[in-house]
């Protein structure tokens, strides 16, 4: 009674056996964290370190497509690219072949496309990178029966960054 129990040999061995995996795991974690920091710092298209909740909470009315896959679809020539920015057509650099559908002149712009845009045709919408106005256009297109709509993630800026072709302007500079 009152005698202290010595830890069993099995327990000691198990403790010693776990020390090494923990040490190795620590080494691998340090390597992974260092690689993460380097990867984040070196990537040209890196995400901001702190995520913007508004971006993720936004319920979009169409799925997003990254510039890379969008560029491949552009080369295939099957999808119609739609510029949703409010500026008058031709005043800003845009994707060659893109047609304008602007919120302010939605019905007129859509009427211009009526002859060659079928409801099932694949459409990729893009703007200046702000998803809210583009999503609104997507919602209105869906109301009119155009269901095959996607939104270019990052808009025209991401497209230019991905080295997608753009039309030039007199000034040669992209507007906001």
């Amino acid at each position: 009674m009152g005698a202290r129990r010595q830890p069993g040999a099995g327990k000691v061995l198990r403790g010693l056996a776990m020390r090494r995996p923990l040490k190795e795991a620590g080494v691998l974690l340090v390597i992974a964290l260092t690689a993460t920091a380097a990867s984040w710092a070196l990537r040209p298209d890196r995400l901001p370190l702190r995520a913007d909740p508004a971006f993720y909470r936004l319920e979009l009315d169409a799925p997003l497509i990254d510039p890379g896959p969008a560029l491949a679809l552009y080369d295939e020539g099957q999808d119609l690219f739609v510029d949703t920015r409010p500026a008058p057509p031709g005043s800003l650099p845009t994707i060659p072949g893109a047609v304008p559908i602007r919120a302010a002149s939605f019905d007129d712009d859509l009427l211009d496309l009526f002859d060659f845009l079928a409801p099932d045709d694949p459409v990729i919408l893009f703007g200046d990178g702000n998803l809210v106005p583009v999503s609104n256009i997507a919602a209105r297109l869906k109301e009119r029966g155009y269901g095959n709509v996607r939104i270019l993630r990052g808009g025209i800026k991401a497209w230019i960054k991905a080295q997608g072709p753009v039309t030039g302007t007199a000034s040669g500079k992209e507007g906001s």
């Binding site: 993460t36 995520a51 913007d52 909740p53």
Partner: peptide
């Protein structure tokens, strides 16, 4: 949580 979302998106695949 949102402050950890992007760091995790980079760290987890590398790990």
């Amino acid at each position: 949580p949102y402050p950890l979302l992007h760091p995790m998106a980079y760290a987890l695949p590398l790990l």
